[in-house]
């Protein structure tokens, strides 16, 4: 772990793994740091930013020294179940890369329990960890110029759902069922269906 300054009122915590990121984020969130504005996990970092002049940044090292970054954080959030329809344009590619049948690929993806590691790229885009090894696959060589909203894809160690249509290079396996609430709706409270730390499962619909 290493701390890096990010201006007068923020600290960037560098960590070794997604598991450490989750543990550090949980410890900082539980510490009730004064003036905390944002706690932004990413793949290997947690950014803690504070209101100008807050003593918060000076308290971050102590919180992390007392935290056990090797222990998996307690699950406090509920589980979100997302009904999806498998049959995405890259399902065959993912299955052949994994050396599995399409049916086994679907069973593998739908059978795992995922955790929201962090959000980014666009509002409500959640990077889910817990992807079974055979499904950890590279991005497409040529990204699509338009991926429809609700597409479910895999890339590297993550699976995720596009909250709105955008360009993207993830391998697409499925799409959210039509009756699922949008993943992100700024006029709704809460706006985002998925937040860091949440558990997520996919439920295969015909």
């Amino acid at each position: 772990m290493r701390l890096r300054r990010c201006g007068p009122d923020a600290v960037l915590v560098e960590l070794e793994s997604l598991a450490e990121v989750a543990a550090a984020r949980t410890a900082l969130a539980a510490a009730n740091l004064p003036g905390l504005v944002d706690l932004v996990p990413a793949a290997r970092t947690v950014l803690a930013s504070f209101t100008p002049g807050s003593p918060g940044p000076r308290l971050v090292p102590g919180v992390l020294e007392r935290a056990d970054l090797t222990a998996p954080p307690e699950v406090t959030a509920g589980e979100v179940v997302l009904p999806v329809v498998y049959g995405g344009p890259d399902l065959d590619l993912v299955a052949s890369t994994a050396g599995l049948s399409v049916e086994d690929t679907i069973a593998l993806h739908a059978g795992a329990t995922y955790t929201v590691a962090f959000c980014g790229f666009a509002p409500g885009f959640a990077y889910l960890t817990g992807l079974p090894d055979p499904l950890c696959q590279p991005r497409l060589d040529t990204p699509r110029t338009r991926v429809p909203a609700g597409s479910v894809g895999v890339a590297g160690e993550f699976t995720g759902i596009y909250p709105r249509s955008s360009p993207g290079g993830w391998r697409l396996l499925a799409r959210l069922a039509d009756d699922v609430d949008p993943l992100f709706d700024a006029t709704r409270n809460p706006a985002a269906l998925l937040s860091p730390g949440d558990r997520v499962r996919f439920e295969a619909r015909p």
């Binding site: 944002d38 932004v40 930013s49 790229f121 666009a122 509002p123 409500g124």
Partner: peptide, 9 residues
């Protein structure tokens, strides 16, 4: 709307 960066906002 600070405080929503963890949601990508």
């Amino acid at each position: 709307r600070p405080g929503n960066a963890h949601l990508g906002v």
